[in-house]
Design a protein around this nucleic acid. Structure first.
Lengths: 222, 222
DNA sequence: TTAAAATTTTAGACGTGTCTAAAAATATTT
DNA sequence: AAATATTTTTAGACACGTCTAAAATTTTAA
């Protein structure tokens, strides 16, 4: 049974290799976990011995099937708890990360499966991220960054890339949530920002960085 | 912020001093936590320094107000989570202890308070134990052990002393739960067991030990 | 292609929480 | 009150997870 620290490493490597396919570098892991590269090397060696990682000196690490399996379970738990916190306990989407980070380490297969049922087997969490089912499979939705939309196009917000608290609070203030309708009104070439219309009402400017962090589903009618 | 291990010690001392008022002995703590007396001494010294305990060599330990405050919070969390597991996720009362033991270490004031509200601010958990409120106060009910009832008397089950899994499962098989009506039909003097009538239907024999572990409220009409 | 920069690993140390074996203190018996 | 038994503490060790400083390796730049 993996310790909490071990689980944190496994999740970190999952998150890192999720995007830049391949292997996670020592430095990337250290940054992700706010620890030193030396600690990461130590830990990696232990976990490689426990067969969670493929590891070769100076070459970074990737998850073995065993590691991937555990990572998926952790992601499942994390996202189900986030859903519970938002849907049932009325937390807002920027408050749930740290609590779910603790709850995901609670060990009980039946707990997570009953929670899943209690929530109605949701497919996406409050940030729009897919929730793996009990077999570890999850639904991938065709989604695009808001940046990739053309002038005049319309879409619905389905997720965010960063779960950074101030970022989510900023979106809240703009009235942007999952399910919010959004239309690109204008490109501002100078700084690559966009003028958008939110829910067919307010017009506002979203920076290049913000647009890159918002996922939309195009041409969807509610 | 107390670690998980520290919290376990604080709760153990609370539980021990709850009954035999006064102080908890090193050995009692060791047994409660399934560890060695030497480890307990080590740990006690650290925690006394952190002002959770009053401690004097060879004299046992008791909780300071600071320690009592933390213990009460842990009890509150434990019992609220047990209630959630039974009421919302349909666990039975013998399955919830180990899971709640993990959940009680999750640190978030707002989580526990929102959970409390979500559950409708329950006063008692699924074992009939009182749940401290946000201020640490809890309702003590006038309750008696089943053993103290006279022949012919009637009462309602309001709690159990031991939370031992096989014991709770045994009660389940007999149809005994919180709220179950029970009437003492006969004393069996030979072994101090009792013949009782459960919910005005089945008659059965309960041993001296079992009767001592069941709490009833007498003369209560539903 | 060699030097400089960045990354990664090793070495050695530390705090937490645990252990066993032995010593010290307390409690119980006789 | 002395001997014995029990409880508690100390001493010394170890695994986990962390750290800093220095060495080794790889990558980048000149």
């Amino acid at each position: 049974m993996a310790t909490q620290a071990e689980e944190d490493y496994i999740k970190a490597i999952f998150k890192i290799t999720e995007r830049n396919q391949g292997s996670a570098s020592t430095n990337a892991i250290a940054e992700h976990l706010s620890t030193s590269a030396a600690s990461v090397t130590d830990m990696i060696k232990r976990l490689a011995q426990k067969e969670y990682f493929n590891y070769e000196r100076y070459k970074g690490v990737s998850l073995t099937p065993k590691g991937l399996n555990l990572a998926t379970k952790l992601i499942r738990k994390h996202r189900l708890w986030e859903t519970f916190l938002v849907e049932n306990l009325n937390f807002s989407w920027d408050e749930v990360h740290d609590i779910a980070e603790q709850l995901e380490h609670v060990k009980s297969e039946s707990l997570v499966n009953r929670l899943d049922d209690y929530l109605g087997n949701p497919k996406y969490d409050p940030h729009g991220d897919p929730i793996p089912n009990a077999e570890g499979k999850f639904t991938i939705r065709t989604q695009f960054s808001l940046m990739s939309m053309n002038k005049g196009e319309e879409g619905v917000i389905v997720g965010v890339k960063e779960h950074d608290k101030p970022f989510l609070q900023y979106l809240d203030r703009l009235g942007i949530n999952l399910g919010t309708k959004i239309k690109v009104k204008n490109f501002i070439d100078f700084d690559h920002s966009r003028e958008v219309i939110i829910d067919e009402e307010n017009s506002t400017i979203l920076s290049h960085k913000v647009c890159n962090n918002i996922y939309v589903k195009k041409n969807q009618f509610i």
